[in-house]
Simulated scan of single mutants.
Amino acid sequence: MTAIDDRAVDRARTRRPARATVGAYVSLTKPKLVELLLVTTLPAMMIAAGGWPGTGLVVATLVGGMLAAGAANTINCWYDRDIDRLMSRTRDRPIPSGVIAPRNALWFGVLLAWVSLVLLGLFTTPLATALAAGAVLAYSVVYTMVLKRRTHHNTVFGGLPGAAPVLIGWAAVTGSLDWPALVFFAIVFCWQMPHFWALASRFRFDYFRAGVPMLSVVAGPVSVGRQSVAWAWGTLAASLLMAPVTPLLGWTTGVAALGLGAWYVAESHAWLNRIKAGVPDRPMKLFSVSITYMTLLSVAIVLDVLV
């Protein structure tokens, strides 16, 4: 990895306003990504509880999950600081831009992980705490340090910790796992592939420049589009199982799963057709649809449980 002069970074930090420094540390956690992950935690908790799980438990689980995800993302930023400097999308992150010293970022990530596990351990269940610890290790170590730079299958493995908030939320309420949790996990897992491959396709040249073998780098655009279509269909198939396996869910979730899933599939096909036609493929349109899909499906599940 490219070495960064920590002493120069420290001198630069002393000249920065405290608010800017705090903001830089927050950005290491990738708050937008954390927010998207937590969108699935509350619906899972509400299904498990058959209603509102209790404000204290919800707050502890969401905050603990937020800190765990932030820890994994921070360690990811620390380890990837060399390739982040080569990519236009990431070169302005706090470490490659010299705002935060690498060692400080690493300690910050470790601290976040420790606090998250203490919080989950005190106020939730042992299983939820163990799942959170496993997700942090899977993303920050196995995905980031082992697989990301070695295989294009990294995204598929990275989808496992990415879908873990569903299981953590369920386990926080029940102390166990059940079929509805696994079905919801399957939805989030399948959903991530078109979601991230669209983003990776938008920045394929960045990944190529950094030497990261994302699918969009090692495979042709048509292959990426076809695999995205297949995973979008998998997302729809899994989402249609939510209502049948969960007595608390009814027509709201069923209609949302069918309509939103069909939209997701249609947009993935549209992306593939644009690729085949040789016109601007606009992968970020599929990316935007994917975010709306997951947000609205989670809202539908919450409404079904409440009503």
Rank of each mutant, 00 (worst) to 15 (best):
residue 54 G to I: 07
residue 4 I to M: 14
residue 184 F to L: 15
residue 179 W to N: 03
residue 235 T to S: 11
residue 193 M to I: 15
residue 129 T to E: 05
residue 243 A to T: 14
residue 126 P to S: 03
residue 200 A to V: 05
residue 120 L to T: 09
residue 124 T to H: 11
residue 56 G to H: 07
residue 97 S to W: 05
residue 114 W to P: 00
residue 57 L to C: 09
residue 275 I to F: 08
residue 3 A to V: 15
residue 305 V to F: 09
residue 28 L to M: 15
residue 196 F to D: 09
residue 107 W to N: 14
residue 136 V to E: 06
residue 3 A to M: 09
residue 94 P to Y: 06
residue 289 V to I: 15
residue 249 L to H: 03
residue 272 L to F: 05
residue 279 V to W: 05
residue 38 L to E: 03
residue 165 P to T: 10
residue 9 V to A: 14
residue 36 L to P: 04
residue 49 A to M: 12
residue 134 G to Y: 09
residue 304 D to P: 11
residue 157 F to D: 07
residue 28 L to G: 09
residue 235 T to Q: 05
residue 105 A to V: 07
residue 296 L to V: 15
residue 61 T to L: 11
residue 207 Y to M: 09
residue 306 L to S: 08
residue 66 M to E: 06
residue 188 V to P: 02
residue 279 V to D: 08
residue 188 V to F: 01
residue 17 P to S: 14
residue 208 F to D: 15
residue 216 S to Q: 03
residue 5 D to I: 06
residue 241 L to D: 03
residue 197 W to S: 11
residue 262 A to R: 06
residue 161 P to S: 06
residue 179 W to P: 07
residue 220 G to F: 11
residue 107 W to E: 10
residue 278 G to P: 08
residue 86 L to S: 04
residue 102 P to K: 08
residue 41 T to F: 02
residue 38 L to H: 07
residue 106 L to W: 02
residue 175 G to V: 01
residue 61 T to I: 13
residue 140 S to R: 06
residue 283 P to I: 12
residue 110 V to F: 04
residue 27 S to C: 00
residue 82 D to M: 02
residue 107 W to H: 14
residue 1 M to R: 12
residue 139 Y to F: 12
residue 304 D to M: 12
residue 72 A to Y: 02
residue 150 R to E: 13
residue 136 V to M: 11
residue 244 P to N: 09
residue 74 T to P: 14
residue 89 R to Q: 02
residue 302 V to R: 10
residue 251 W to C: 00
residue 51 G to N: 12
residue 260 L to R: 12
residue 42 L to D: 00
residue 219 A to F: 10
residue 86 L to N: 02
residue 199 L to P: 06
residue 3 A to W: 03
residue 236 L to R: 10
residue 190 C to T: 15
residue 265 V to Y: 10
residue 112 L to V: 13
residue 40 T to W: 00
residue 25 Y to P: 03
residue 113 A to Q: 11
residue 29 T to I: 07
residue 89 R to D: 01
residue 287 F to T: 07
residue 272 L to Y: 04
residue 164 A to P: 00
residue 252 T to L: 15
residue 181 A to G: 15
residue 299 V to D: 02
